[in-house]
């Protein structure tokens, strides 16, 4: 069993999604700036609340109420002082904002041979993610994956950047993996860009950041960073299609027939077969994924069976209806899907 599948089963463990636990240079820059801003605002907080509490205690009227206190109408020098001081703080904040903003938002380069960079077009759908792998290390890729984004992890001195072009197929979404980068929205009709890189192999969780309808809450992101060699193995597998094999058991053969005979093919795609739908997740390598339905449940045979039988039970409101398959059809189709490695 590969270690990533293990991680999926270990989903009971809390996985950090904190913005103060960065694993990518951009997220780290943001963390550093945030700490500076927290320090400045923290100082203002202590100062102003301090004066407020002091004044409230010190000048609280005692039991005896005498005459009115001296009336002070204002003071120009004092007003100028407390206009200038916040002005200076604002000036400093604008400068540090500018610096970080320019550092973390470079213009994305074009892919070229030997750049060791991965280019992916990520497309938000109600309520799942489509990833079109465009280029890796300057070589053209053209395959599509869904929901789980595999990326190469860099090594010291050998950074492997990931550039995402962000689109939406329907409504606004937002791509957000807190440990890798801040949010960038997916706005239909516009293409946005973001990048990240990490030296830490592992799983990075995130989810859609912009309300996008019924199942916004379960539009989860899993980014899986693997050492370059593992990643390239994964790439090689994903590039291939699915052909019927001679030695497939009978249930798989009939499952394939059932799958291709049902309306599954209108929405889903399995490369190498007549199933060429584009409005639902690409299933070509379904079994290489840790989870189903954009991260809501682990990819186990039982979950897959329940999903095929009635997706509305697992993810109410999702766009895949329950098709009312017979138990036999359902089991055959699941058997077939289980071969899509």
């Amino acid at each position: 069993m590969n270690p990533w599948t293990l991680l999926a089963y270990g989903g009971g463990l809390a996985q950090s999604q904190s913005i103060f636990d960065p694993a990518s240079p951009g997220a780290a820059e943001i963390r550093n700036l945030s700490i500076l801003v927290l320090a400045i605002t923290g100082f203002i907080f202590v100062l102003v609340e301090g004066i407020l509490l002091y004044a409230s205690v010190r000048f609280r009227r005692g039991a005896a109420t005498g005459s009115e206190p001296p009336q002070v109408y204002g003071s120009k020098p004092i007003e100028i002082a407390w206009t200038t001081a916040p002005g200076l703080i604002v000036f400093v904040l604008v400068l540090v904002t500018t610096r970080t903003l320019w550092e973390i938002n470079p213009t994305p380069p074009d892919p070229r041979p030997g750049d060791q960079a991965l280019f992916v077009t990520a497309i938000g759908h109600q309520w799942w993610w489509e990833y079109r792998y465009d280029h890796y290390d300057g070589k053209e890729l053209s395959f599509t994956a869904a929901n789980e984004l595999h990326i190469p992890a860099g090594t010291k001195g050998g950074a492997r950047r990931v550039y995402l072009a962000l689109d939406s197929a329907d409504v606004c979404h937002s791509f957000w993996v807190p440990r890798l980068a801040g949010k960038t929205d997916m706005i239909p009709g516009r293409t946005n860009h973001m990048w990240f890189q990490t030296d830490q192999p592992g799983l990075f969780l995130g989810q859609c950041g912009e309300f996008c309808g019924t199942q916004h809450a379960n539009m989860l992101i899993r980014v899986i960073a693997e050492p370059a060699a593992d990643f390239e193995r994964w790439l090689a597998n994903e590039k291939g299609g699915q052909q019927p094999r001679e030695n497939d058991p009978e249930t798989v053969k009939s499952g394939r027939k059932a799958f291709l005979g049902q309306s599954c093919v209108n929405c889903h795609r399995v490369a190498g077969t007549p199933a060429q739908g584009t409005c639902a997740p690409d299933l070509t390598h379904l079994m290489s994924r840790q989870t189903l339905a954009a991260g809501i449940v682990a990819n186990t045979p039982e979950n897959l069976r329940q999903w095929v039988a009635n997706p509305q039970k697992i993810k109410p409101g999702c766009l895949m209806p329950a098709f009312g398959l017979s138990d036999r059809d359902r089991d055959r189709i699941v058997d077939y899907l289980r071969t899509l490695r």
Binding site: E29, I30, L33, V37, T41, T97, G182, K183
Partner: peptide, 20 residues
Amino acid sequence: IGGLTGIMLAIVPFNYQLTD
């Protein structure tokens, strides 16, 4: 306090993380 968290949200890079 609401004003100070507002300052944090105005810092664009910090906002990329905090917005929404």
